[in-house]
């Protein structure tokens, strides 16, 4: 592919829908174990830590620990679902099964394929986050109708992590490569973004590190989801939404350019 075509902005168009449909059709065959798997693990952590560890703790940020943990569990479970789909599943389709190669012989372009994968990974993560939200509501950990606004927050979080995951997918020589992304990015982010404890626990860290931590996508997602579950309008909501949206867009542009370089040489 010529340089100007490699670096052109993505042209998502509307033809990506059959790519989404393809993934949905595969998922439907394995829907029940998939949903159970996505739901069980985060719930065990949330309930185990929330009531177990929470029993030892005084209130955290003015609420019970399990209520505090609920928002973090929803967004981290969204993050995991989107990341796994954009890493392992997308890589299988791109590199192992050559599904994308087959699609590129049809009128669809690589931009359509990537848009379909992006929206699919975000859709799957929406289901993951939504399932936890339903349990959280059923346990009475949230009672406000404002909690419904968590649903678009989940989808936006899913888009941001799916787009970042597609960058890693474009760069990966093999499945082993993904371990770096988890160890160097996802896991540290999980600890500094206010999922398990308030992010200001790190206030003794240098200001630069705190600034980076505050800019992480998971931190923005937590700061949106937690107040909404408690029935409050998040402070600086537009800043957090804009940050997640910007991350999603920039990451998707980067993923598109990198994948074109990989596949359309």
């Amino acid at each position: 592919m010529g340089k100007h075509r490699i670096f052109a902005l993505p042209r998502p168009g509307l033809r990506w829908l059959p790519v989404w449909q393809r993934n949905f059709l595969v998922w439907r065959k394995l829907a029940i174990p998939s949903v159970l798997g996505n739901l069980a693990d985060p719930l065990i952590y949330m309930l185990g830590l929330g009531y177990g560890l929470g029993g030892l703790l005084p209130q955290v940020s003015g609420i019970s620990y399990v209520s505090f943990l609920a928002a973090g569990t929803i967004v981290s479970s969204t993050m995991n679902a989107a990341t796994f789909e954009a890493l392992y599943s997308a890589f299988s389709r791109m590199h192992v099964q050559k599904t994308w190669e087959a699609i590129l012989n049809t009128p669809l372009s690589l931009d359509h394929v990537l848009t379909g994968e992006l929206v699919w990974a975000a859709s799957k993560s929406l289901l993951s986050g939504l399932a936890i939200l339903v349990v959280v509501a059923a346990l009475g950990l949230t009672t406000s109708l404002l909690a419904l606004w968590v649903i678009p927050v989940i989808f936006l979080t899913g888009l941001a992590f799916a787009a970042m995951g597609l960058i890693v997918c474009a760069l990966a020589p093999s499945y082993d490569f993904f371990m770096y992304y988890f160890t160097l990015f996802i896991t540290p982010m999980l600890l500094v973004s206010g999922v398990f404890f308030p992010a200001d626990q790190f206030d003794q860290l240098p200001a630069a590190v705190q600034a980076i931590a505050a800019g992480l996508p998971l931190a923005h997602a937590v700061l949106l989801a937690r107040p909404l579950l408690l029935g409050e309008v998040p402070a600086n909501a537009s800043v957090h939404v804009a940050a997640l949206l910007t991350i999603a867009i920039l990451a998707f542009i980067a993923a598109t350019v990198l994948t074109r370089r990989r596949l359309l040489k």
């Binding site: 059959p18 393809r22 059709l25 595969v26 087959a102 699609i103 049809t106 009128p107």
Partner: peptide, 23 residues
């Protein structure tokens, strides 16, 4: 293509259905 890239997650008919939708 030189190497088969049929979708292993689908049956024979589903492969044709899914591929046709790309068009």
């Amino acid at each position: 293509p030189q190497f088969d890239n049929i979708d292993p997650d689908f049956t024979v008919a589903e492969n044709l259905m899914v591929y046709g939708r790309y068009f």
